[in-house]
Structures are given as C-alpha cells and as structure tokens.
C-alpha cells in the first residue's frame, strides 16, 4: 500500500468531496421544496392532482438513477427543441444536468416519505383543527406539515445518506465529484486500491456528519418527547 500516494491525493480528493457536498446539498434543498407540494397533491382526493404525482413518483422510483442521468445528460441534448430553448445553457452543463436529475429523484422519494408521514399524523389532531374552523390550507401548514416533518425525519435521514452515495454517479457524466476525482487519479497512477479506500473514508466521514446532524435535528424538533425541564 502506497501511503505517500494516499496522503498526496488528499487535497484533490477534498476538492472532489466539496463538489459532492454542493451537488447533494443543492439537490436536497430543491428536492424538499418540490416534495412538499408533491406530497400534498399525492394525498389529495382530486384525481387530477394525485394521479400525475403518482405517475411521477412511480417513474423516478422505478428506474435506476444512472439511467435517469444518462437520459437527461445525453438524451436532452439530442432534442432540437431543447437545444433551441432558453434552457439549453443550463442542460448543456453536466453540473446542472446532475442537479436537475438528483433533485427530481430525491423529490420523488421524499414526497413518498412525506405522504406516509402525513397519513400517520394522528387523526384526532387533524379533527381538532377542523373543529376549530381552520381552513384546509391553514390546517396543513400549521398542524399537518410540521407534525409530518417530525414523523418523517428518520426516513428522510436515510434518503439523505442514499442521495450522498447515489451522487457518485455524477462521475459518469464527467463531473469531478469525490468519486470522479478518485477515478481521474487512478487513471493516472494505476492505484485503484489506495484511491478508492481514501474515497470510501471520505464518504464515511460525510455520512458520520450527516448522522450527527440528524440526531441533533431530531432532538431539537422533539422537545415534546423529552422529559420536561424542571427549572420553572
């Protein structure tokens, strides 16, 4: 094992890791913004709302992320309409293709997680809101969604970690994320073992950070599950 190579590769790998963090963070942030309305549409009784969302979720959960990336990156560029549209500067870039795909992918999974959580909000609490005269949107905003977020957090934490690992596929469309950088160095040095071990360690470190952050978030969001403070 070439320890010197491993140490020398750290600065470059860190740059790759930074790219990974940017990709995942942006996709997750956009994804959850999209997932909230999707989940609300998904639990609606109106078929014009829930059926398209059902289809969207079905497609994104039912196909490999790699295939989705290829379709966006290679496929969209083939279409005359896309190349002449105002979106072309955007879809021309591998970076935005990856963000776009990851966002849609994670929003589909997150919408499904939120749907489960929304349906798990105790019926009586929803009924109490209705009985007080809350209009539907207000009730969703003030009671159902905040309550569902807390219920969804453990499953959503899992989705974050899956997204982090899935983001390695960005390297297949030329992006220099953590995996991409490792592959480039391997091609130059023929030392796959050393480089991928280093990449794995960095992924583990990122996962550890996420797990810690989630633990903290869960703690912050559930004062109602902790024993009361006795100061007052």
């Amino acid at each position: 094992m070439d320890f010197q190579l491993m140490i020398d590769s750290i600065p470059q790998l860190l740059e790759g890791a930074w790219m990974t963090v940017k990709l995942v963070a942006l996709a997750l942030a956009l994804g959850i913004c999209l997932a909230i309305p999707l989940a609300l549409a998904r639990v609606s009784k109106n078929p014009f709302l829930w059926m398209p969302v059902y289809g969207f979720i079905f497609v994104f959960r039912g196909t490999p992320l790699l295939v989705q990336i290829f379709i966006v990156y290679y496929g969209l560029g083939q279409s005359e309409a896309v190349r002449e549209s105002i979106f072309w500067p955007f879809f021309k870039e591998a970076y935005w293709c990856a963000i776009f795909t990851f966002t849609l992918n994670t929003s589909a999974y997150t919408a499904e997680i939120l749907r489960g959580a929304i349906q798990a909000v105790p019926h009586g609490e929803v009924e109490a809101a209705r009985a007080l005269g809350m209009p539907r949107l207000l009730m969703l905003r003030r009671v159902v969604v905040p309550r569902a977020f807390r219920l969804a957090l453990p499953a959503y934490g899992n989705e974050i970690i899956l997204m982090l690992k899935g983001s390695a596929l960005a390297s297949t469309i030329t992006l220099l994320d953590l995996t991409g950088v490792a592959r480039v160095i391997v091609a130059r040095t023929f030392a796959p073992y050393e480089l991928f071990i280093m990449a794995a360690i960095m992924y583990l470190a990122l996962t550890l950070l996420i797990v810690r952050a989630l633990k903290y978030a869960e703690w912050r969001l559930s004062p109602h599950l902790r024993p009361p403070r006795h100061s007052k």
Partner: peptide, 9 residues
C-alpha cells in the same frame, strides 16, 4: 373530544 386531541408538537 374523548381523547383530548391536543396538538402534541
């Protein structure tokens, strides 16, 4: 309600 139904959060 019989089961109170306070908002627990």
């Amino acid at each position: 309600f019989q089961s109170f139904n306070l908002w627990t959060h």
